[in-house]
Amino acid sequence: MKREPGFLHILARLMLVLLVLYLSWTAAYFITAAIYSRMSWAFHDLFVFLINATLGFFFFGIISMTVRRFIQPREQHAFTEMIDALKRISQGDFHINLDWDLGGRNGKHRRTHPYVQLVDSINDMAANLKAMEKLREEFISNVSHEIGSPLTSIIGFAKALKDEKLDREQRDRYLTIIETECIRLSKLSDNLMKLAILDSERHPFRPSLYRLDKQLISLILACEPQWEAKKIEMTVEVDIVEVNADEDLMGQVWVNLLHNAIKFTPQGGSISVSLSSNGDQAVICIADTGQGINEQDQQRIFERFYKADQSRSRTAGGSGLGLSIAYKITEMHTGSISVSSKVGEGTVFTVMLPLHQKVMKGSSNCEMYNGTVI
């Protein structure tokens, strides 16, 4: 029968203690025997046994104290390092990497040692806090930049409006820019508030059974002026699917993804939206024929304020929060969202949601819309 490593470790330590104890008793026996042989009279057997046992325990204590002198300073040093590391972490220094050598222990036993587990926990905590601090700094920097840019424009054009020599056309153009930047700030504020509420889990989460196919078609039709203005061919293929989710929150996901697709699809391009079921999950795909996203950016596309194309995002007026909100809401529904893209070939966002309800197969009611299935 295979024994657990912990049991073998305890057994080995017990055997070591017994070995040292037996050696101490043996040493005591030979020493007292040598002393008794030089004496003219013999002691009683009980007295001899007691003397041998006492002397043996005395030797055992001396050996234990000697070994302890070599082991305890190392442990004390390790605890001192750990306490110092915790103090540094409490003061905001997360550049911690403790390492405590356990001598000849093999890898498996070393990992199960409590001191090693404690050191690894401190290292992991420091690494996680360091990563969080980096994200916090990036977040503050991004917020400052996103707020600073429109404010600079507003201040500049507001000062320009004080010039009485401006004609009506220039004045209207400056006012339009100020209005656009104010709308941009308002959207940024709204998105930041949404993320803060979602992160704090204070947002009311009210899942209910509803027709996901109807929701998607309704939102696509609501976006008709945007995709019609760019002469985008919109194709929709949906099954009748009922999901148990928060309809308002999921609506935000579809709006963000649809607006992104319309925003980055060129004039005369195409967008396709599909909805189907795969086992106990609903699968929603939103594909566009935009310029695509390179592989390196795809790994960070759901980070807050991250923009795959900085110049393109600024031109389109985005803040880099829409996909973060979509990711957070999908995560709240225990679903997943992923991106697949090739530069020059377009982008596909895939959302998978648990159904929690039987899916009714078939096609939803469709209408012909300028030759496009809606």
Rank of each mutant, 00 (worst) to 15 (best):
N191I: 01
I140M: 06
E179W: 04
M125Y: 11
A126D: 09
R136K: 11
L161A: 11
R136D: 05
R206Q: 14
F205M: 08
E133H: 09
I183G: 03
L195D: 00
N191Q: 15
Y174E: 06
Y174W: 08
K194C: 00
R202D: 01
I178F: 05
G156F: 06
K130D: 09
S200I: 00
F139L: 02
S144I: 03
E164T: 14
K130I: 00
L209P: 01
E137K: 13
A131L: 08
H145I: 07
H203Y: 10
L175M: 14
H145A: 13
E164H: 11
T152M: 12
P207V: 09
F139Q: 02
F205V: 05
P207F: 08
K165A: 15
N142R: 09
L166C: 07
K187D: 13
L161Y: 09
L185H: 04
I154S: 07
I140G: 00
R173T: 12
R168H: 12
L212P: 03
E169C: 02
E138A: 14
D120R: 11
D163P: 04
E181V: 02
I155P: 02
L188K: 03
K130R: 13
L135T: 09
I140N: 06
K130H: 12
S141T: 14
K159T: 12
M193W: 00
T176V: 03
F205L: 13
F205I: 06
P150V: 02
R173Y: 11
E169Y: 12
S153A: 14
A196Y: 03
A126C: 12
E169D: 14
A127I: 01
L135P: 00
G148V: 08
R168D: 15
R184D: 05
G156M: 07
N123V: 10
K130V: 01
G156Y: 05
D167K: 10
E179R: 14
D213C: 07
L209Q: 11
L161E: 10
D172I: 10
D120G: 01
E201D: 07
R136L: 04
F139N: 03
L166F: 07
P204C: 02
I122L: 11
E181H: 03
G148T: 09
L166N: 15
D124P: 00
L209K: 13
L175V: 06
S144Q: 14
V119I: 15
E138W: 05
G148P: 08
F139W: 06
D213N: 15
R211I: 02
I154R: 07
L161R: 10
D190T: 11
A158G: 14
I140C: 02
